[in-house]
């Protein structure tokens, strides 16, 4: 999860890419800018994000929209499909991205009312970043759990660039190694989260012989996660080739319905997370996966899922960022299930 810079790009395949984007002036009443991407238009008011396209329109509560948009940006359009809700979302083609309305909605598809356009990723991403910057008010952090941030509502008042422009944490070998991502501490701005106040903060014993300081290393991963200031935003903490351990802390709801294009593994490290799993194309329910501390499960490549956590939980998302996978997906050769038995 969240290492698409190294995930490799499949060959762009579309010749008719939409390239038009436009930032419109701020609305005189609400103060928010509107945006155009291809044939899509985006407006926000005090409560809602409003999306229109040729022949259709859609409304999403702006808190839902901003939380989903934030993840789509932070994850570089992610692996597969990011459903903001049952109608609107994006699908990553690794170098290009499809923006759609109703493409993965049975009713829209059956009625022929779905609409989509494909963009170069580097055309759409800057617009999304401008949008989240303009639509996020002072005091609201779309990465935070709802009880830990202000509301996104109302007319335009200030901004929170510090929150929406956070750099994603990506260790190159392991957190805590010299020159790599540092551990989190009070001193560097990461206090222990209120729901993890009971997580031990002890450090491992590390006895190093001279000359091996870069190789004899360990850190307290649970303490590191207890100090995460974001939710549902995996960060890379250890790397074995293309195998990325991407742990994260989860509270409330995964703000997107993630449509997998490859198998994705979850290990719940503490507490409980419940996943609603639906068919990727139709949205029909397939399973609920109830995961508790120590549970391991794989999300198949043909599903969409969202997660729920009441008590803040620690989740290890395990990804394979191999550059061969996008090409396998394009050819339909990527396995739907990781393990057959």
């Amino acid at each position: 999860m969240a290492m698409l810079e190294s995930a490799g790009n499949a060959s762009p395949s579309s010749e008719n890419l939409a390239r038009h984007t436009k930032v419109l002036p701020a609305d005189n009443v609400n103060g928010y800018r509107s945006f155009e991407a291809g044939s899509f238009q985006f407006k926000r008011d005090e409560y809602f994000a409003r999306i229109t396209w040729p022949g259709g329109s859609h409304v999403i509560p702006v808190d839902y929209f901003l939380r989903a948009l934030m993840r789509d940006i932070a994850w570089g359009f992610f692996y597969g499909t990011v459903n903001f809700d049952g109608v609107f979302g994006t699908t990553n083609h690794y170098g290009e991205v499809t923006m759609f309305a109703g493409l993965y909605n049975d009713a829209f598809r059956a009625a022929g009312r779905d609409f989509s356009e494909r963009f170069p990723s580097d055309v759409l991403m800057p617009l999304f970043k401008t949008m989240i910057g303009d639509w996020t008010n002072e005091g609201y952090d779309p990465f935070a759990a709802p009880m830990e941030t202000g509301g996104p509502w109302g007319r335009k008042h200030g901004a929170n660039d510090e929150a929406v422009e956070r750099a994603r944490v990506t260790a190159t070998r392991m957190v805590g190694l010299p020159g790599d991502t540092p551990v989190r501490t009070d001193a560097n701005g990461f206090p222990v989260n209120r729901m993890f106040a009971d997580v031990p903060q002890d450090a491992p014993v590390i006895e190093v012989e001279p000359g091996f300081e870069n190789e004899v290393s360990a850190f307290n991963l649970f303490a590191y996660l207890s100090r995460s200031d974001v939710t549902w935003n995996p960060s890379v903490c250890s790397v074995v080739g293309d195998s990325l351990f991407c742990p994260t802390s989860e509270e409330f709801i995964l703000p997107v319905d993630h449509g997998n294009d490859r198998c994705e593994w979850f290990v719940v490290l503490t507490d409980e997370i419940v996943w609603d799993v639906k068919d990727k194309a139709s949205g029909k329910n397939r399973a609920r996966v109830i995961m508790k501390a120590g549970d391991v499960s794989c999300m198949p490549a043909d599903i969409r899922h969202t997660g729920y956590a009441d008590k803040r939980a620690m989740l290890l998302v395990w990804e394979n960022a191999s550059s061969k996978i996008p090409e396998m997906i394009q050819k339909g050769e990527a396995p739907v299930v990781s393990v057959q038995f």
């Binding site: 009971d198 507490d271 409980e272 329910n285 399973a287 996966v289 109830i290 501390a293 120590g294 198949p300």
Partner: peptide, 25 residues
Amino acid sequence: TRFGSLQDFDKGRVEIVDDDPKNYV
């Protein structure tokens, strides 16, 4: 915070609606 241990773990489960539980490994 609910941790697990060899002595005390509470395993979850896959509740199937329309799928094969083996797909979730």
